[in-house]
Design a protein around this nucleic acid. Sequence first.
DNA 1: TGCGTACCGTACCGTACGGTTCGGCAACCT
DNA 2: AGGTTGCCGAACCGTACGGTACGGTACGCA
Lengths: 218, 218
Amino acid sequence: MIILQVFEQAKAGAAAAGLTERQGAVLERALGLLVEGGERALTTAGVARAANCSKESLYKWFGDRDGLISAMITYQAGKVRTVEVSAGALTAETLRKHLLAFARDLIDVLSGDVSLALNRLAIGQASREGAGLGRLLQERGRRQISRRAAALLEAGRKAKLLAFDGADEAYGTLYGLIVSDMHLRMLLGENAAALKNEFSPRAEKAVDAFLTLYGAKG
Amino acid sequence: MIILQVFEQAKAGAAAAGLTERQGAVLERALGLLVEGGERALTTAGVARAANCSKESLYKWFGDRDGLISAMITYQAGKVRTVEVSAGALTAETLRKHLLAFARDLIDVLSGDVSLALNRLAIGQASREGAGLGRLLQERGRRQISRRAAALLEAGRKAKLLAFDGADEAYGTLYGLIVSDMHLRMLLGENAAALKNEFSPRAEKAVDAFLTLYGAKG
DNA sequence: TGCGTACCGTACCGTACGGTTCGGCAACCT
DNA sequence: AGGTTGCCGAACCGTACGGTACGGTACGCA
């Protein structure tokens, strides 16, 4: 079973990024500003005011605004842990359950408002400044979840319940079946909760479709 | 057969949006700036300089910066026409060819640099200002292509080559199988050409998978 | 008691942007 | 010729932001 746990306390993310608790709290407020008002609301003065700290401290801790943003990403990523509970012997039924849990977790992660805000921020910066933040977000955020999925798929293949050549390609198919254009529409501003309610029931069908495509026959 | 034609001349997009040729040329330069440098490069002074026009004219024509951006979106949308060539009687083979052509066209559209730049822009604005630009982009851009796909799917069902309940859901599946996370990764700054080369060969497999899922048996 | 450290709050500076105004020029009408 | 229109280029204005500097304060330590 794959579980995504989100620790809401500042401690977890801060500790994961090697920051003090105070700095984590500041990043938490910064994330709040970003979620609430987008990139325009993420000003150094605004963060300082919201977090009751001085701009001087912000620059001492994070270097500059980009450093602050990078710290926000790694801090947020540190709050999300993917914990794999060894599943013992996979059966067709447990595999399906695990895939379904993964699908729901994936939808939850993608539709989270902090995740959406950070993705919007990174996408906005992608054009003007290489792909620095994009890579960071990809590496610290989704790579983990995709690795867990890859492990699950591999276990399914080992148990002769799945048949595929490339694990990456199979994962891409699973992802596409689950997410479709949901993520993009959320990023473009469509009501995230409504879209989540629209796509969550489809998770089951997506998993069934995936098993139809990649399930070992017999 | 569904064909996406992109008219590169300013005339087509301008005429479609009810603008003069000169104004279309200005929007073309503005799009160029946006593609090259992202939102930060899209300043009123910059557009005026690049297009050899005055800021006064910009504000007379487009109202304000947001009006300019909206005009850019509708102008760009006006350049892309989806033309449906009636396919006569569908066979399993022609349906597959049409689906494949649609898949390739979809990948082409999504990986276009102007499309990527406009999507980044709309996503960046989504957080701070409702979903105005996002809706506009969705409405003028992708709705058309999705309607064409829906028509194709409907034709396939009429010909008893496809079996599905909801056309929207079937289209969502097709879209997910083709695109997976390609679009998001491009938006985040990954090399678009490389990703396109990675996903184009998979279009065939995506169509086959779709036919496996929704093809009428027998 | 004195000193260093870390921090807050505020003021400040340079720059850049959105938007407005104005002088000037060319074309077009009458 | 004189007036109107449309446009350019440049100057201008108010604002907001990133980044820096400074005075003041609480706390730890000798």
